[in-house]
Design a protein around this nucleic acid. Structure first.
Lengths: 163, 163
DNA sequence: TATTGTTATACTCTATAACTATA
DNA sequence: TATAGTTATAGAGTATAACAATA
């Protein structure tokens, strides 16, 4: 479909040799080396995201909204914030998802300017299938050894802890 | 801006406890545990990609094209392939980038149906700045210990090797 | 006055279908 | 006939600006 594309090319300016990122003292370059490779893998995968969303007849953004909307009512302004987009876009986005019966607008009783979004029953069901699909590891990951997987999992936990 | 949003929410259906992904036998769930956490970090970061592209007055897709176009002439159809989009879109995309002086169309001499894309001098200069910017590790990664960074780098190398 | 959501407008990205020029 | 790129058209996502309702 569209979106970020994958690449087998390194981000390093020096070129694409298998050990690009080995230059300079290892310690000064270490975060950059690790990040560059991680970024490459990320883009290789994100390239498939629009197609994955399309499996559920969702646009990439809609898939993301369904994913975000799991934790109960969310103000439209909060959603705009999560999506890093202008509030005006959320109106049309929610219009389309509401027309498909995935979400509902409910006026807040505390502040009548605010409209809270909730998934419909159909939305919740779709979300469960989507999350299940998203959690399927791609080949690139599934092919790693158990030792690497354990290490990767633990490193990711430590990285996300600081969030 | 827009795009994938970050989330502090786990993909696991069971919930968002710090050790979601710990359930079941560790070995059967290991790829999924590692992937779920990696996916979370990916999305947290991809959320910033449109803003990063905008630093260079590029749309996300244009930024991606600049990145891809580093290895010399590329047929428009090949670019469409890389972008996982229809060839008709590449016409407009390249029109806009050509108008900005970033790329040039050159008719192939082997097959006069084909047009090869090359970065202009300005395009090359922009690409170098962009790659430099993309290679900057985000805080989440930069904060990891050297030991974790080394392990992460090596695991990513092994994962990408199988590509 | 400030904030929430909407509307209006414009641009980019995307898909499909029909077209052209080559092969 | 088949392929590479274009054009036409339509829909989705995005930004900015102006607006109504509410705080």
């Amino acid at each position: 479909m569209r979106g970020m594309s994958g690449s087998s090319e390194s981000l390093e300016r020096r070129g694409r040799s298998p050990d690009a990122g080995q230059e300079a003292s290892e310690d000064t370059g270490l975060p950059r080396q690790a990040w560059t490779l991680l970024f490459e893998l990320m883009h290789a995968h994100m390239r498939n995201f629009p197609a994955l969303a399309a499996e559920f007849e969702l646009s990439p953004v809609q898939a993301h909204v369904v994913r975000q909307l799991g934790e109960g009512p969310l103000a439209m302004s909060t959603l705009a914030n999560y999506l890093s987009c202008d509030a005006s876009n959320v109106t049309g986005l929610v219009d389309r998802m509401e027309a498909r019966g995935l979400v509902e607008r409910r006026s807040s009783e505390q502040d009548r300017r605010v409209k809270m979004l909730v998934l419909t029953e159909a939305g919740v069901a779709l979300r469960e299938r989507l999350l299940e699909r998203l959690a399927e590891p791609p080949e690139l990951i599934a092919a790693l050894s158990d030792e690497d997987l354990r290490a990767l999992r633990d490193i990711m936990r430590r990285a996300l802890r600081s969030q």
